[in-house]
Amino acid sequence: MLFFSYFKEIVGREVVVELKNDLAIRGTLRSVDQYLNIKLENTRVVDQEKYPHMLSVRNCFIRGSVVRYVQLPPDGVDVELLHDATRREARGG
């Protein structure tokens, strides 16, 4: 549940969600649930020429299982803290 908790911390920040089908969507993180389903607002497709049909979309719901990466706001990440917490979670802490 570590990343669920972490993502809740950065609700309201801008992220880029990269899907396994290579679509990348920039937007404001509106909410996240325990399955890491992600709701974005004010979305923009990163590669608009390749995905013109997504231009109009202003908010969307992305299924957690299709997310490959989430690019985080650099100042929203305490790398050391997240590192330690990740290790902690990995050993069942």
Binding site: S56, N59, C60, V66
Partner: peptide
């Protein structure tokens, strides 16, 4: 995978 509300007449 994804669902969204699409309102821009240029997209659809």
């Amino acid at each position: 995978s994804l669902h969204a509300v699409s309102r821009d007449p240029e997209a659809y």
